[in-house]
């Protein structure tokens, strides 16, 4: 049933989700291959979570085709769910149970025998660095710890495919880096990951391949590097002008670079050589308050695809 190696683990064709007259996912196509980390990047409301919920068999497909591990979510949800690990956007740990009980009870839902469940719980608590909190209640844990416990819980059935919906949203930088490190190790072990995020750095750190979603559709697909090469330049010069009326700059930046993007707070100059462009700005005596040359990122990809920034 799961097909030859190299076949897609998740395959979507014209996948659509509607809530009444609102279309959350509008006929998207994608393939997730075994052992890759596949990302859905896009702003809030782009349709990422709806897509995830359809893959996780938590939300019925309105239209189109979806195969998860070679099976149909409409008729084989139980079999699919037995082989998935799900980390939802909002933690839904069992707050009436302790840390350890959360893992062991979850194992029972998968019919995992008690002795196996106990040894897996030990291993996973080590893996997410929560062994010392095993006997504690869930509620007093920090946001990062709850997230890590949710990830451990999602791994209790040794899933073939792990789905993570915005795994680090709302966490402080330290907690995010710890989580990224764990997810990276998971990938090294050969797990297939699907990750949604509206953080560029997260997508660049974790994803082998990703699709950019906007307004219920996929607008681009590729590896982070491919996307940057295709939709942005090597470097970006960010200019801030302070109080100066930008209208008065009209035309002054012309010919400076292949593309200039105006944002409310700054102007982005897309060029392969940021320093050279900055020299040119100074030579033209343009009154700049501050300037910064940086490498292009997925943020720029999104901006060039949609004309908007990702996190508003």
């Amino acid at each position: 049933m799961s097909g030859a190696p190299g076949d897609a683990l998740v395959r979507a064709r014209k996948l659509t989700k509607r809530f009444g007259s609102f279309t959350a996912v509008d006929g998207i196509d994608f393939d997730v291959r075994p052992a890759e980390a596949f990302g859905f990047l896009g702003p809030n409301g782009a349709g990422k979570t709806s897509t995830m919920r359809m893959i996780a068999c938590a939300s019925p497909v309105t239209d189109g085709d979806l195969a998860v591990i070679g099976m149909n979510p409409a008729s084989q949800a139980r079999e699919i769910k037995a082989r998935l690990g799900v980390v939802p956007q909002v933690d839904n740990l069992d707050t009436e149970l302790t840390v350890r009980e959360n893992l062991e009870m979850y194992a029972r839902y998968f019919d995992i025998p008690g002795s196996v469940a106990r040894s897996r719980a030990d291993e996973l608590l080590e893996f997410v660095q929560l062994a010392e909190r095993a006997k504690d209640q869930v509620e007093p844990l920090s946001g990062g710890m709850k997230r890590r416990l949710t990830i451990a819980r999602a791994l209790i059935n040794e899933p073939q495919l792990v789905i993570l919906d915005e795994p680090t949203t709302g966490l402080d930088p330290q907690a995010r880096h710890l989580l990224w490190d764990r997810l990276y190790r998971l990938k090294q072990r050969g797990a297939t990951l699907i990750i949604t995020t509206h953080y560029m750095d997260e997508a660049e750190q974790l994803c082998d391949r990703l699709v950019v979603m906007d307004k219920a559709r996929i607008v681009a697909e590729g590896s982070p590097l491919e996307l940057i090469e295709r939709y942005a330049t090597r470097e970006v010069l960010e200019l801030r002008f302070g109080d100066v009326k930008r209208a008065s700059l009209d035309g002054q930046l012309q010919g400076l670079a292949e593309r200039v993007e105006e944002l409310p707070d700054r102007t982005l100059v897309y060029t392969d050589d940021g320093e050279a462009a900055l020299d040119e700005v100074h030579r033209r005596n343009i009154p700049v308050q501050s300037a910064l040359v940086r490498r292009a990122s997925l943020e720029d990809v999104f901006l060039s695809l949609t004309g908007r920034s990702l996190v508003e």
């Binding site: 996780a56 938590a58 079999e79 037995a82 069992d94 707050t95 009436e96 839902y109 998968f110």
Partner: peptide
Amino acid sequence: FRKTYDGILATPMG
């Protein structure tokens, strides 16, 4: 409030 069932529904339980 606890969203307990959402977690359980991600397992083979229906």
